[in-house]
């Protein structure tokens, strides 16, 4: 329905969870939240059509969206939480820190001192550091080399997808693999990646110059509000239990729907209802998951298990 539903392969993850063909996810009849934010869950430039439902990550976001005049708001949980529910954590070795410098999105430019940020990272992180850049910054040789010269490994999870073009179903899978390879996740702003990392078992940290977008106007209170409201998630060392509780809440990992309910909400077909229905392995995975899934207590599922 909206091209942002397919960002980061979100619709692909949900299709697989629902036992449907994740190579070509069905149309989601509504707007799916695609990133953590402190407003109504949608992107600031999102155009709304009255009557189209909003599928939001968390109950707090739903309450906030309602207070901002949104109706037909439903909590489904973040696609990331569904991915973790389907991908059990293995006994792999975790090492070092994966660091997400604040980035702009398409058409935006970040103003900040990467050199000073590198110094701050070095002063805090004891182990090896992987810096994950957004695809825009990753394509900038200057920015990439800045971090490489500091001795950091530089990666990019991929392109989040355009307007129904160049979709990348593997985005979240690559991010999950990277996060599970690291002991810590850090950024200079509290963002989706930090919550993802916490849920994937990393110890979180938020510190350093938060940088600015060129011409950035604080929306819904901006960084001062984030630092005040989520103060417990800021600093180089954060209580892991508190962090996990907050991540479960913000990602709606305690609110995941069983596949049958999710299909109903997204107005997706039942598996096998279509003659050209799912025949791949992913779809079978989803169907198998369907039989085992409880509707709640996602944190206790095998896939949500966290190495502490």
């Amino acid at each position: 329905m909206h091209h942002a539903n397919h960002y980061y392969g979100h619709s692909h993850v949900l299709a697989r969870y629902c036992g449907l063909d994740d190579r070509d996810p069905p149309r989601i009849h509504g707007y799916l939240q695609h990133g953590w934010n402190i407003g109504d869950g949608m992107a600031p430039d999102h155009e709304f059509v009255p009557g189209v439902p909003l599928f939001l990550w968390s109950e707090r976001t739903r309450r906030r969206a309602w207070s901002l005049g949104r109706r037909q708001t439903y909590v489904v949980g973040a696609p990331w939480a569904y991915l973790l529910a389907m991908e059990p954590d293995g006994p792999q070795r975790r090492e070092g820190t994966i660091w997400y410098p604040f980035h702009g999105w398409e058409g935006q430019r970040v103003v900040g001192d990467h050199g000073r940020l590198i110094d701050e990272i070095r002063s805090v992180e004891a182990g090896p550091v992987t810096v994950c850049l957004y695809w825009q910054e990753y394509r900038s040789t200057r920015v990439r080399q800045h971090y490489e010269r500091a001795g950091f490994r530089v990666v990019c999870h991929g392109y989040r997808g355009g307007r129904w073009r160049d979709l990348d179903p593997g985005f979240l899978h690559r991010q999950l693999a990277e996060l599970r390879g690291h002991r810590r996740v850090a950024s200079n702003r509290l963002c989706s990646a930090i919550y993802y990392g916490i849920l994937a078992g990393c110890e979180p940290a938020v510190y350093g110059d938060p940088m600015q977008l060129a011409g950035e106007a604080p929306v819904w209170g901006g960084q001062p509000r984030i630092r005040r409201q989520w103060a417990q998630l800021h600093g180089p060392r954060i209580d892991r239990d508190v962090a996990r509780e907050l991540a479960v809440t913000e990602l709606g990992a305690d609110r995941l729907l069983p596949p049958v309910e999710l299909r109903r909400l997204l107005r997706w077909p039942e598996p096998g209802a279509d003659a050209a229905g799912p025949a791949n392995g992913a779809a079978r995975d989803g169907a198998a998951f369907e039989q085992a899934t409880p509707p709640v207590a996602a944190g206790e599922r095998p896939g949500m298990g966290v190495a502490r």
């Binding site: 207070s67 901002l68 005049g69 005040r228 409201q229």
Partner: peptide, 18 residues
């Protein structure tokens, strides 16, 4: 005095939301 959990863009007094 910001106690925490304040609603950034909300007004009960203006009568527009309730």
């Amino acid at each position: 005095r910001l106690l925490g959990d304040e609603m950034h863009a909300w007004s009960d007094l203006d009568g527009a939301h309730g």
